[in-house]
């Protein structure tokens, strides 16, 4: 699962993306997913900035396969609980989007392991710890 930092890092570095695709192909039987809330962070409307991201995402969406995970009421409520708990534990600057991402991972983790590739691992780790999930990992993209 990618946040905006993960999307941007993979979309703008062909070498990094190539190695990720190669490694995922050999080691994992998984998929690349992007929580819908992340779109707000990486979509700029500037074609010079969006073109690389669009190419990456459109490649993932070939064969009519969706890459975005929808934001449901349950996930939004879970994100609110996680964000409130994080703020109460001394992390007042946890963003709504970060909480949405981890709440989405929390939902998916009911069925499979999830790794979040993020440019902000510290905040993600705080939120993931609050889920008490052992099958959610946080990593940086590059």
């Amino acid at each position: 699962m990618l946040d905006s930092g993960g999307v941007t890092a993979l979309a703008t570095s062909k070498d990094l993306l190539t190695d990720y695709l190669n490694m995922l192909k050999r080691r994992f039987d998984g998929s690349i997913l992007i929580p819908i809330a992340v779109v707000t962070e990486f979509r700029t409307g500037d074609p010079r900035k969006d073109v690389a991201v669009d190419r990456f995402i459109n490649a993932m969406r070939r064969r009519q396969v969706r890459v975005y995970v929808p934001l449901t009421l349950e996930i939004a409520e879970r994100a609110g609980v996680l964000r409130t708990q994080a703020r109460a534990s001394g992390h007042p600057d946890i963003s709504v989007t970060d909480a949405h991402i981890v709440a989405t991972a929390d939902d998916l983790a009911n069925h499979s392991a999830v790794t979040i590739l993020t440019g902000d691992p510290e905040h993600m780790k705080v939120l993931v710890e609050l889920t008490h999930r052992t099958n959610i990992a946080v990593d940086v993209p590059g």
């Binding site: 192909k25 490649a59 070939r62 064969r63 396969v65």
Partner: peptide, 13 residues
Amino acid sequence: ERAAQQESMRELE
């Protein structure tokens, strides 16, 4: 869907 996306990833690589 996962198999289809993995095929797309191979193509992109």
